[in-house]
């Protein structure tokens, strides 16, 4: 998923006995696996947490256009250019579904943009890393979309109906994105030594930031416990990270690449890999706005919004004029 460290409202997870009847009925519906829909009663904390999570997810999709868009004009063949255009267009589409899902909770898209532009709302740390070669485009599809899928598949069963439904379509498209990323790299590792070196370099740079996408260990987090009780979150960060590593390492082997982790080792007893920890200090710096591309990414989004003000105002003014003409026409007719 593209949402990290989403703060949950609520100091601790309440037991059913401690809840007022309305909240208790709500929790019982969630426990029974029923979906919550927009018009229904929900605790304010549930609503706020979802807005935070879905908007962060949406912002990640649109900021995510930038590192990949960086290579559309330099894509090496017409087919690769077309595929990358289609992929980035999908990401914008995901942003659109997610903003719509968040809007059902009583916040407007413009308000969410405002929160992004002023730095109040976050987007995934991963998009603050630069795309330096064409292999990075493959690595983003393979690793970043791969990590996103790990998190998004369980969200299809999330308790909030509009979010769960948006996720069904998004997951289908993300699987395609991951395959195309892997395909970019598979082609390159069979190419020249320079191409293969480019792929290894991309893995070296993207491996750790990809593991950071799941967020720090949250086994002891109150936020995560509440989100799990509400079925907004289904697995711990460490569970998902483990799953990602177990899935990805054999793929790296297949590509003939070396995962840049000296501690990486198959553990027969647990049936998974042991692996090292990302540099969490770096992670918190990136989250705090000090990553390699934070200023550029947010600057690009703000500029797009500010430069486009006249465009949006022009369309709104035309709509008003057209409505006035229609009303005047009706009055005259």
């Amino acid at each position: 998923m593209y949402a990290q460290m989403v703060k949950t409202d609520g100091a601790c997870v309440k037991s059913l006995e401690d809840m007022e009847p309305q909240e208790r009925a709500f929790q019982e519906r969630i426990d029974a696996g029923q979906k919550i829909e927009p018009k229904e009663w929900m605790p304010e904390g549930y609503r706020k947490t979802l807005v935070r999570q879905i908007s962060q997810h949406a912002h990640s999709e649109i900021v995510g256009q930038l590192p990949e868009g960086n290579w559309i004009t330099r894509a090496p063949t017409l087919e690769r250019k077309a595929i990358l255009l289609a992929k980035v267009q999908d990401e914008a589409g995901h942003g659109l579904y997610l903003y719509c899902a968040a809007e059902t909770l009583g916040i407007s898209r413009d308000e969410m943009y405002e929160q992004l532009h002023c730095g109040k709302a976050k987007y995934s740390s991963i998009f603050n890393y630069p795309t330096l070669s064409w292999a990075d485009i493959g690595a983003i599809g393979w690793l970043v979309d791969g990590a996103a899928i790990m998190n998004q598949v369980p969200l299809q069963r999330c308790s909030y109906g509009p979010y769960a439904r948006a996720m069904v379509r998004i997951c289908k498209e993300e699987s395609f994105h991951q395959r195309q990323g892997f395909d970019v790299l598979a082609k390159m590792v069979k190419g020249t030594p320079a191409q293969k070196a480019m792929v290894q370099d991309a893995l070296d740079r993207w491996w750790w930031p990809s593991l950071m996408m799941f967020g720090p260990s949250d086994d002891a987090s109150v936020h995560s416990a509440q989100s799990m009780a509400w079925k907004i979150k289904q697995n711990s960060n460490d569970e998902l990270r483990q799953k990602f590593v177990d899935q990805t390492v054999p793929q790296a082997d297949y590509l003939g690449l070396t995962v840049p982790d000296p501690e990486l080792k198959w553990n027969e007893a647990k049936g998974g890999y042991d692996f090292g920890q990302p540099d969490w200090k770096e992670f918190f710096e990136v989250i705090a706005g000090n990553g390699p591309c934070n200023a550029e990414r947010l600057g690009a989004r703000r500029k797009a919004w500010d430069d486009g003000a006249w465009f949006r105002e022009g369309l709104a003014a035309h709509a008003t004029k057209a409505e006035q003409r229609r009303t005047a026409g009706q009055a005259a007719g």
């Binding site: 930038l66 289609a86 267009q89 797009a304 949006r312």
Partner: peptide, 22 residues
């Protein structure tokens, strides 16, 4: 058109421009 990707004045325009470029 593809130079606009991610920089258009509205999300719908990003999608439409990418579609036209495609």
């Amino acid at each position: 058109l593809s130079e606009w990707c991610g920089h258009a004045p509205a999300l719908e325009e990003d999608i439409a421009l990418a579609n036209t470029a495609l």
